[in-house]
Design a protein around this nucleic acid. Structure first.
Lengths: 214, 214
DNA sequence: TGTACATCAGTGAACGCGCGTTCACTGATGTAC
DNA sequence: TGTACATCAGTGAACGCGCGTTCACTGATGTAC
């Protein structure tokens, strides 16, 4: 009967060839609307058109799959930041340009959280033992994660003279916390019912306070 | 046989008398180590010494119980903030006193997150439709939630002249976001592996940047 | 070029789990007379 | 003060759910000769 026949009708060869990636792609879509709890081995296998045990050829367990999805989500956050920064118009004044990059980084971060809530939540549902500081984790196209991109923006402020080098240490904690906190408060927290306009005001204020305090 | 006999041995009368509260207390302990996912009707009933259906006399469903637990967690956060602010030594200079209150508020927030991780997560696992802005939700002893306590601290800055009134609007967004973001990054995010000393530095920097930018 | 065989990548059935929820029930309590 | 009865607050059994994981298996692939 042929499972072969059945399988042929949907154009999936018995040897899938890239089932591992297909499972990750499926799991990413599962995570997309709501988050990491919806990353389910059986559902991902279903989407990939494969029995649910087949997944165990490619991932030791559900957690391994989730880990792969987390990394992808972190990468996508980094990619959006890079995109938004690259879209910036050129600015002759290096200090102004550096500020613009920092603002764009922060705005992109919040934009990602609000436009891709499930991915944002998944990116930060990091299984223990994975760190943003590890090279290779959560990388964007240039091999940098969101944290490194933020670091670059802050370095730019110092290099351009906009911010004194004595203020540089720990600056990413402040900038990152502010933007991350706003994202989670708007997404899942008590600020979730803010109107579009109120959100924009809140974001402006957060960025202004961070910029003023750096 | 007496279920009565059985029941007597553990000193729980058939009519419990305060089962609703007992269930909430049990659920709060369930949430304490890890968070809202561990708030389970059956487990709470078990702890309260009652069959799991009895819970339905007091809560329409699991979500109602969780809602009650959320509110309690928010209240406890508010109480810790009040405690820490009240512990502050008197300061003759009203501006310095106002700054000290803001700092204490922020430190207490992060302290709560790190010392009571499950409660912190639960406080912000707010079921849709509950807002921190509602009076009566998430109240401390004075009837104020964390958000209102923060607002008071900020008002104090303006009243004491430490901060111009033109900078007041939206200030809670900035302060709250920074402290909330740091809490979640340290608790569940990529900063979770920071050492005690690094955490303290990060917190100092976050507070300094917010204070400088307000 | 053909064949034997190891290995790889799937299959389908089954297990155990704990959950939320519903059902029909019964013992305890409180109230009207 | 006693009694009938409504109501309240529990009980225990059962259902259905989807999950992660394991088992023994088999068809497809690739390689050595």
């Amino acid at each position: 009967m042929s499972m072969l026949a059945i399988v042929d009708t949907v154009n999936i060869p018995y040897h899938h060839g890239r089932l591992g990636e297909a499972l990750v792609e499926a799991a990413i879509e599962l995570a997309r609307p709501r988050g990491p709890d919806d990353v389910v081995l059986r559902a991902a296998s279903r989407i990939a058109g494969v029995s649910h045990n087949a997944a165990y050829r490619h991932f030791a367990d559900r957690d391994s799959l989730l880990r792969a999805v987390c990394e992808q989500c972190m990468t996508r956050l980094a990619l959006l930041i890079e995109t938004r920064v690259d879209e910036l118009p050129a600015d002759a004044d290096p200090a102004l340009a550096a500020w613009a990059r920092l603002y764009a980084t922060g705005r992109a971060y919040v934009e990602f959280a609000l436009s891709e809530p499930g991915w944002f939540r998944t990116a930060f549902a990091v299984p223990r033992g994975v760190s943003l500081f590890d090279p290779g984790e959560g990388v964007g196209s240039g091999g940098l994660g969101p944290y490194q991109l933020l670091g670059e923006a802050l370095d730019g402020l110092v290099e351009s003279g906009a911010v004194g080098p004595d203020r540089r240490p720990g600056a990413e904690y402040a900038a990152w916390s502010a933007v991350h906190g706003l994202s989670t408060l708007l997404l899942d927290g008590p600020l979730r019912d803010l109107s579009e306009a109120e959100r924009a005001q809140a974001l402006d204020k957060v960025l202004a306070v961070v910029a003023g305090g750096l």
